[in-house]
Write a protein that binds this DNA or RNA. Structure first.
Lengths: 190, 190
DNA sequence: ACTTAACTGAAACGTACATTCCATTTGAGT
DNA sequence: ACTCAAATGGAATGTACGTTTCAGTTAAGT
């Protein structure tokens, strides 16, 4: 049980805040050096505190993702499934657009905490889809698991392209949700 | 007017072929060293022949993209717009899935020839969409330009995720094209 | 105030690249 | 066969990183 000095605790938070800030800014290098400078620390301190750059990013991304997961659960608890889905997707796209570095630079990294949170997000969306399907608001002639993947991947792509195309988010939600409507021959029970 | 020796011409083609081969293989480093080894050449030769790694990749990606552009034009000339669109999108996704390195590693690069070919692809898709809209096969309550961006970005994302999800391509086309159908209140003239 | 273990960061180091150098080899015109 | 500019590739160089080292600094208990 090692003693933890107060300045170490403070610096850990500074590094985390700096990393989160850089993740929200496009075109920034996202190097240890950049994070350390932003935090007013030395690069060595930043790395040592977290045990490596990857662990730092894992922690930072997790902190960014936590409120999103919470929001998904809240919406699912408060709104009917279809409305929850529509609302959440809109917010998710906005969040990803504001933090696209989160998804852009982190492709080939193994970040345990982040991966776990993503799984929770997927679970929440899956639940919303299930509910919407039972309501008859979403077609049931497609593999639910595939639809979940479809939404996750396309929503991310749309978010990435959002800054360059006005109205893309709205068009995406419109096309996606209309495309997910039951076909006339479907057996919606709502 | 510099003389061009036969071995230089041959080696240029070898390097190009090697680069194209590596672009079709996932998980490969895509370094100059790897390309040179695959081509049976030294790294210096590969770089010097093209004037830099970027120029080499530009040439290789362009060669990969050329037949796709040709195919888009052929389909547009032979099939009705909506069918051409559906067919081409399916093939485009398959192509991108088979060459996802093309889109994965080349995000932050400035590749003139590649960019020009991409523009031609976008133009072909735009034409198909316009035609389909006039046929009444595609809704006209959305900004055409935005719809083009939407399709480009999401098709690419789906292609990237294809290896991990069976049936994703079909589900994507189904949802997208159903979502693009005219709404009942639309003024389709077909 | 003293002590000491935790902590710090500038500099050194390791690594993975693209690129350039240059002594050597080779194609091609004579 | 001879010549020489073109071409080659192993080695050297440059660059951008993440990580480690270590002499010095600082928090915190006594």
């Amino acid at each position: 049980m090692p003693k933890r000095r107060a300045d170490a605790v403070r610096n850990r938070r500074l590094a985390l805040d700096a990393a989160m800030a850089l993740l929200a800014e496009p075109g920034t290098p996202l190097t240890v050096e950049a994070i350390a400078t932003r935090a007013g620390l030395g690069a060595a301190t930043v790395v040592r505190t977290f045990g490596g750059k990857d662990a730092l990013l894992d922690a930072a991304v997790s902190r960014l993702l936590e409120p999103v997961v919470r929001r998904a659960r809240d919406l699912r608890a408060v709104l009917p499934p279809y409305q929850a889905l529509r609302t959440f997707l809109g917010e998710l796209i906005a969040f990803q657009a504001a933090h696209h570095a989160v998804n852009h630079e982190l492709g080939g990294l193994h970040l345990p905490a982040t991966t776990a949170l993503r799984a929770e997000l997927v679970e929440a969306v899956t639940d919303m889809l299930d509910g919407a399907r039972r309501e008859g608001a979403v077609r049931d002639d497609l593999d639910p698991e595939v639809v979940t993947v479809l939404i996750s991947e396309t929503a991310l792509a749309v978010a990435r392209a959002l800054p360059g195309a006005q109205g893309l988010g709205e068009a995406y939600l419109t096309v996606l949700l209309d495309g997910l409507r039951p076909r006339v021959s479907d057996g919606g029970t709502g």
